[in-house]
Amino acid sequence: MSQRLLTSAVFAGVAAGLIAAALQFMFVIPALLEGELFETGARIHFGADGSPESDRGAPGLGGDWGRHLMTVGFNIVTYVGFGFLMLAAMAFAELRGLTMITARQGLIWGLCGFVAIQLAPAFGLPPELPGTPAAEIGPRQTWWLGTLIATTLGLWVIAFGRGWVALSGIVLILAPHLIGAPHLEAYWGVAPPELAAEFVSLSLGTAAAGWTALGGLCAWFWTRDTP
């Protein structure tokens, strides 16, 4: 039965990765490439003359298909990776007799994955446009990792814990944000605030769709009848 675990994770991960990549090319990558115009100085928003004004408009995907192919490839790798973890968690919950997964339940598992891996870390460290200066990579990765582990455990405890134990999940989810994410002492962004804000919404919304698809597909492959 370990084979079912493996194949379900791979099928679901590849499919969800392709869905996520398609959505990223529609919504996220154009904003990212527009951000790069400010990162490289091709466009300047906060000019020396004191005018915070610049043209609006994404430059288009361009002809760098190698780069875009890599983005699709790494989306697949990432979503297969998360698919393995998702199915391990689903199988573990079933093994412990906590629940029996259904395909529709999988959608909720996917949404919880989105909350734990994307939304909770983004609450402290918003998705960054290229060229956004940020605090040192080490502390940020540590906070990011700690936050997603704490949020995952918190959601698990809320879903499967009893009585007061379930409520302790709230503490786990809240704790990283009370500690606070590492930030710089000053603002250094070169891109228009509107573009940075749009990028955050677009990337979180896209991730929400990708994760919901991943959860639903993992559960569907996992529970489907095999002849």
């Binding site: 990212l32 875009h68 983005t71 989306n75 990432t78």
Partner: peptide, 14 residues
């Protein structure tokens, strides 16, 4: 190689 995807997924990558 993973740059755009990491930004899109909000992995803290640099």
């Amino acid at each position: 190689a993973a740059h755009d995807q990491r930004h899109a997924m909000a992995f803290p990558c640099h």
